[in-house]
Every structure is written in structure tokens, then in C-alpha cells.
Design a protein around this nucleic acid. Sequence first.
DNA 1: CAAGCATAACCTGTATGACAGGTTTATTAG
DNA 2: CTAATAAACCTGTCATACAGGTTATGCTTG
Lengths: 237, 237
Amino acid sequence: MQADLRSGGPENLVSTTVGAITAHIRNEELGPGDRLPSEAQFSKDLSVSRTVVREAFRALAALHLIDLSPGKRAVVAQLDYGSMSLLIEHGVVTEQITVQQIYDVRRTIEIRTATLAALRRSEAQGQKIVELAKGMQASRDDTQRLMELDIALHLEIAKAAANPIFALIVGAFDGVTRQTWPIGWRSRTTEEQQVFMLDIHVRLGEAIAAGDPTTAADLMAKHFDESVRALIAAGIS
Amino acid sequence: MQADLRSGGPENLVSTTVGAITAHIRNEELGPGDRLPSEAQFSKDLSVSRTVVREAFRALAALHLIDLSPGKRAVVAQLDYGSMSLLIEHGVVTEQITVQQIYDVRRTIEIRTATLAALRRSEAQGQKIVELAKGMQASRDDTQRLMELDIALHLEIAKAAANPIFALIVGAFDGVTRQTWPIGWRSRTTEEQQVFMLDIHVRLGEAIAAGDPTTAADLMAKHFDESVRALIAAGIS
DNA sequence: CAAGCATAACCTGTATGACAGGTTTATTAG
DNA sequence: CTAATAAACCTGTCATACAGGTTATGCTTG
């Protein structure tokens, strides 16, 4: 069950301990917020040093499977895209992933989230999505704020799709988006292009709020087609 | 850049060190296989104990951003879905994700991989995909082998899509699939159902090998519709 | 001078012990 | 019974030590 078995990696004490900890979570049917035994406890039970247990804890914390904080016991964590975001960033930094590939994946995923969001969004979510889109329109001059709203909007749509995995994947691209977004925006040199981009977001938000899955999906597709054009225009490979 | 900033978590020495290591990878423009400085080196440069550096290394190894092995220096790792697989398993075990949600995501993603694979597969990949599908047909009585071939087929299609992120996501569901697959298969009680399921895979493989994206996407969609029906029939929520 | 081999230097995996500072639990005083 | 206080516990970090695997150095030999 542990990573090293899957990757065929070498078997060391830390991996074994990681396996024991995840097994504990499974066997005790722990859920988010539940507390784990202390490091000393695992150390005694598994007959390994506290050093090893600590490194195992740290590994699980890196994956956000558990949360650590000083003095307190480790607790089972809620799903979080932080680790996936790091993974994707690593892929981009080491040139194993291109920005265009990310956009292809996002396009695929987010057309679906738009559809689902239109079908399943709550009243409050629909309202928030429209607000974010209109907030973008109002922030055309504040690039930083505009970007944050854009990212928040896409994530909110993913959340409204009521499937945490979609939110996980969309969130995974947050980090990279923060680095590439300004490039795409700068490539939209004319006011027309900028207004068009912002307009699409508003119409997308409204379609979702109105519960119109077809239009929402259509607009999301248009949005990504336009974004990819913008990136290519900016010379992003 | 490090996870803790994003999650708003507390700032401790290990997180700082993780940040320093990823910064090193970025600044030195290291790629997969390149060696990192030793633990002692980071320990000296950052003025922290080797304990801290080790825990940071361990955290990055958990995300498969680096590979560790005894005696050798840590090296920058290739993209690997092992950590995402653990994340998804954790989500299922802690009941934050349902199997149906996974199938919705997989359907979305894999319709796209089928399309792209049909467009971009190499000759060898097309051949391998067909072989895997036919191998499944020949293994109708060997459940274990059948499952492994099925998983391998889907992953191979994702690889043929020539976008590593798709392979990453498809691979992320490997672990969970191994646990739920037998349930779905057992629910296909009649020979007809089983033959139909295997037949779809072969036709899918052939469509990809033939470079027919529309048919490939269509068959992948059918495949997932049928699979979801099978799971629901088996009472999986 | 070149090639191969032995050895030394280096590196990671793990253990032990220690202590500061935060958290939880138990105890005691009101 | 409540609230304050003390004790017990827990994590974060450090230093040190050593076994065993890896790499580089330099020496020997052809």
C-alpha cells in the first residue's frame, strides 16, 4: 500500500512506518480531524527510533494526508491540493510539463466542471461565482487582483461541481497559473480583447447561476480556446 | 512557493528548508537525474541541523520530487503518479471521495486521452494498446491478470496521448482501481456482459491504432457508461 | 603513460539522548 | 461545581555516533 511498493523502490524503515501509519488510519477508520497516536507511541509499537517515525510523519504531512503542529498530536487531514500543486510546479520547472499541456488538461476538466456546476451549484455558490466574475470586470486595471479573482472563480466553479476531485485537479494548477497568467494577460494588448475575456467570464458565471449546463460548457470551451490563443501569441510553448 | 505558504500553515525550519531545496532545483535549473547537494551541505548552508534537512528531503521524496537511496546523493525525480495515488486512496479511505466521483473524473479525462491517443500514438504504442486489449480477451478467466491488463491499457492510452499530466491523473487512480475493480467485474454475471466489456476494449484499442479519434472517444464513453452501470448494480455508492 | 584496483573520503540510514516551548490532562483550591 | 494551577505529555530541533553503501583518489602494475 505504501509508495515504495508501488514504485518498486527500496524498502527502508521509514517506508514501512509510513505504511503502518496509513494502515492505522484505515484500520481505525479515522476521518479528517481525528488524532493519531504520538510519535513515541509508534516508535514503541514498531520498535523503531523516534527519528524514523518523525520522518514518516513528515512524509505524510508533505502529502497533506496528516496535519502537524507543535505540541499537538498529528491529525488526519482534509483533502488538499497543495501537494499536487507542488508536483505540477516541479514538472514545469524541470521541463517535464509544458504550459500548453496544462491548458489542454484544464480545458478538458473545466468544461466538465462548468457543466456540473450549472447542474449542481447551490444558490449561494451561483451568486458567489457571478460576484467573482463581475469583480473581475471591475478590476481590469489591477492585474494582481484580477488574477486572484480569476483563479478563485475557476476554483469556485470546480467546488460547485460537487466532486472534490475536480477541485483537487483545478487547484493543482494554481501555483503554475500564478506564474503564467500575467503573460497571457499582457498579450491581450487591445481593450477589446481584454473586455471580451472579462465578458466571457461574466456570461459563464451567469450561465452557471442560471443552471444552463450547455451554455456554461460552451463558454468555458470558448474561454480556453481564447486563452490558448493568447498564450501562443505571447510565445509560450 | 512551498506548501506551507499556500496552506497558510505555520512556518517551521523544515518548511523553510523544503523551500530552499526546491529553490535550489529551480535556480540551478536541475532536471530529472541531476544530483542535489548532500544533507551536510544544506545543513551547513542553511545553518540547520542535519535532522531538519533529512526531514525536508523525506518530505520531497514523499512527493516524488526527488529520489533517495542509501549512500547516493539525492537526485531530481521524474514525474510519478505514486504520490497522487496515495492522495486519492487517502480520500477514499477517509470517505472524502466516492468511487462514483472517481469514475466521473476518469470518464472526463479518458475520453480525452482516447481522442488524443488516436491522433498522436506512435506505431509501437498503437500496437501495444491493441495487444493489451486482446490480452484481456484471452484472460477472461484470470481475474487478477485481467485487472492488471485493464489498468495497464488505460495507462498506456494515457501515455499515448503525449501529455504527461493525463498519464499522471490516470495513474493516480491505479491504487483505488485495484480495490474496486473486482467488485465491478463480479457484477457482470453473464458471459454476454463480460464479452461485451472485453469487446469494447478491443474495439477501442483498434480505433486508437487506426487513428480514429471520434470512434475512440465514443467507445471510451460507452466503456465508462457501462462500467458505472456495473458498479451501481454492485451497490457501490 | 594508461588502465585497473585498493583504499580513503564521503554519504545516507538509523539510534540515542537532550532540552525548549507549546498543549493537554489532572489536581487542587475556592 | 468551577476555575486556577501544576504536572505530564508532545513536538521541534540539535548534537553525536556508527554501520554500511558509494564515489573519488591515488597508487600499482603492465
